[in-house]
Design a protein around this nucleic acid. Sequence first.
RNA 1: GCCCAGGUGGCGGAAUUGGUAGACGCGCUAGACUCAGAAUCUAGUGUUCGCAAGGACGUGCUGGUUCGACUCCAGUCCUGGGCACCA
Length: 889
Amino acid sequence: MLAGSPTVDAGRAARHFPAAMAYEPKTIEARWQRYWLENETFRCEVDPSRPKYYVLDMFPYPSGQGLHVGHPKGYISTDAIARYKRMRGFNVLHPMGWDAFGLPAEQHAVETGTHPAITTQRNIDTYRRQLRSLGLSYDWSREIDTTDPRYVRWTQWIFQKLHERGLAYEAEVAVNWCSALGTVLANEEVIDGKSERGGHPVVRMPMRQWMLRITEYAERLLADLDDLDWPERIKRMQVEWIGRSEGARVSFPIVDGDKTIEVFTTRPDTLFGATYMVLAPEHPLVQKLTTEAQRGEVEAYVAEAARKSDRLRMAEGDDKTGVFTGAFAINPVNDARIPVWIADYVLATYGTGAIMAVPGHDERDYAFATKFDLPILEVVAGGNVAEAAFTGHGTAVNSGFLDRLPTQEAKTRMNAWLEDQGKGEATINYKLRDWLFSRQRYWGEPFPVMHLEDGTIKLVPEDQLPVTLPELDDWAPTGEFETPLSRVPEWIETSDPATGAKARRDPNTMPQWAGSCWYYLRFCDPRNDAEAWSQEALDYWMPVDLYVGGAEHAVLHLLYARFWHKVLYDCGLVSTKEPFQKLLNPGMILGYAYRYYDDNLSDDPDARPHAYPSSAVRIDGETAVAMATGEEVKARWLMQDAVRWSEDHEPLHPTLDDLPLEEVTEKMSKSRGNVVSPDDVIDEFGADAMRLYELFMGPLEKGAPWSTDGIPGCFRFLQRAYRLVMEEELAPGDGTQEQARLTAKTIAGVTKDMEAIQPNTAISKLMVWSRDISRDAPAPRAGTLAFVKMLAPFAPHLAEELWSHLGHTDSLTYESWPEADASQLIEDTITLAVQVNGKRRDEIQVPADSDEAAVRSAALASESVRRHMDGKEPRKVIVVPGRLVNIVV
RNA sequence: GCCCAGGUGGCGGAAUUGGUAGACGCGCUAGACUCAGAAUCUAGUGUUCGCAAGGACGUGCUGGUUCGACUCCAGUCCUGGGCACCA
């Protein structure tokens, strides 16, 4: 707990100053929040006469926990930028909404029987209240909620656009079925074969699923990254996710049969070195090719592979496993008979699910060939295949018509040959796979389609959208392989309004990503019931000029949204190729958590567990074990408040004697007990101090553990600003020469920092101004007005309060940003450092317009310089204008 | 294993194109005000030697380039993030 809370401060300050003079953030902030809301201060409309600026936060999923202090860092930053841009004359679109579909509300319904819509509304109300209490300048008239039928309608409409263009299709896909949750999970929701939430087991099951053909856009998603002003690492992550690679597709005919195995290779130049082939265990040809003699072994291997989790497969690393199918294929370049194996180091989901193995020039194939004693052939000179695979480029050898060609030419030559012979072709392959777009859940957008009895699919007519969710009173999963919606026959069974024919609705819903794929478009025209958006609104507002949100969305959300945007572009519905011009990722604010372990694995409340400090525990793969006994133990977490501190400031367990705790900084979460609510911080210091602190604690992109140590400093600064304006008699005009100069320098510096999105250094310049401005003379009115304006992006409530005290009746939201007086920025005397042999020895004052000779002689005249020159003659004198003089002896 | 980002006082962090390292804030020390404490204000605060003047050292570590390196180059260690048999 901190020494000075503002309430206490205010009371104490009141003894020295009239009561009205105390800085009381509570009163000020409530007053201005009400003012902004009542006057719709931040409402914006299309106005082609003014330049626009669209600054967007990634909208949140309103969870039941409410906001913690980590969330608002981005929101506060964008708010400062939005407020700054308004003062620079931009028409600013700064909206907020809710990504409100999602599994937690549905799980909550399972547990409590409360309808997810009710939970969701309640959570939204909390979030809205919390965001408003931070004084964020959103245009609340544009608030949207992805679960609102008026929004769902257009999400479904966009799905239909995708369907019409052949980009949505159904397929049998092995999905991650979790019977405990009663749903299929996305790959990212499965960790180590268990569900991310709850850690329930997950099995792979084939199921009819909606897929979106994002792969069709792979090339454009890749190419258009070039023009985006995004952090390089985010772009790189997308590039790697898309995973483009150039190579060739080659057909290998099977001996004794009419089938062929298709493979993808990036090294067609090594085709002569292919000495065997490998199919993924899941490859459809496996059953057909396997000879009777090998069948038993192959089937056992396939079954084993299906059972193994990805993690287990991965853990095997270089230790390759596999089984011979008994079949042989023909290498199309030299008609060699080569054996066909199956092995799980070949992935069913990449390329064609089959490879030609070139052990001489691929490390994995080399390891496999060595283990199973398969021939290794050198076809590229440059390494030593007796010792290791040579994967570099070199000169083709033992390769017939390719011999003596360098790798690059050999590839081209082979591709031409393959095409000529009809045995393959040059092709480009992507890691990116089509997007599994259905979830077996209730709380999502229903698919706007009808399944007719003849097996065809028809879209629900546009004028009948949205297809809304049916009411449901039993939320619990049955554990059957079915979806919640399929249990509502009166909803599932419908008829085609055009023909009256019987039809069934789709029992799946869309994933949470759907709503967030286009919300930035809806924000441009959120109340339009005739269309998803008007062309006019979009043409004016798009693209998003600045998009700010967590780096955890680097790939999925940002790739999916770009994909939808490009489809809409192809439909002629949006006019920009990309949605988000500039992207920034605020660093995560972490919380301190305190850990120890005990052996109460079953969480038995009556147990008297043995506790272990972290130093007595080692992590063995997934589990923690006590080093002394080898027994499994479980991590326990204590809240910061609960921790007892030893004399030398080491964290200790509050009741267990001398049990040291391990201090860990982790993402704030309920389970770690390290969540700090903004409500508490605001209550103690006010929203302005909290905003200031989150911006001041470091650069936007950098994360750090939350600590309240710096907040009182920010509070003091605001208090000083308050007193300066409220208590002191201001001098008219610009004040003294020095004051005018300080003000001009501050304006120039803060403006530069704002343009570079470096609020931390902007704030420090404001602190300097407030500290120094009234040191020798009363603060000047003109400078004070500029200061209050510059304070507004960071501490908007206080800035409004001061602005109004200075005699204004309107909000300062749309006041123009101060302009630095250029003449004040020119110094007439400058200070130069003087170095001797690169070491600083003195400094000199010279007129700013001194020429080099004058500077040089002034430097040589310095007493300290002479001493360090030690009587030697200068060999060289370097004069850096406006900076320093370096004398080399 | 591969890729990326980052290592600066007791702490959070500043530092244009290579040009006075440590702005600003926290903490700490001293002083003013006070019966006293809190708050507020003022001064000091990288380490080290020195009474001082003034030195020496100092941006993870080792070298290099340069008149001059937190900044550029090579190597190395550590921390955080991403990817992970992608043919």
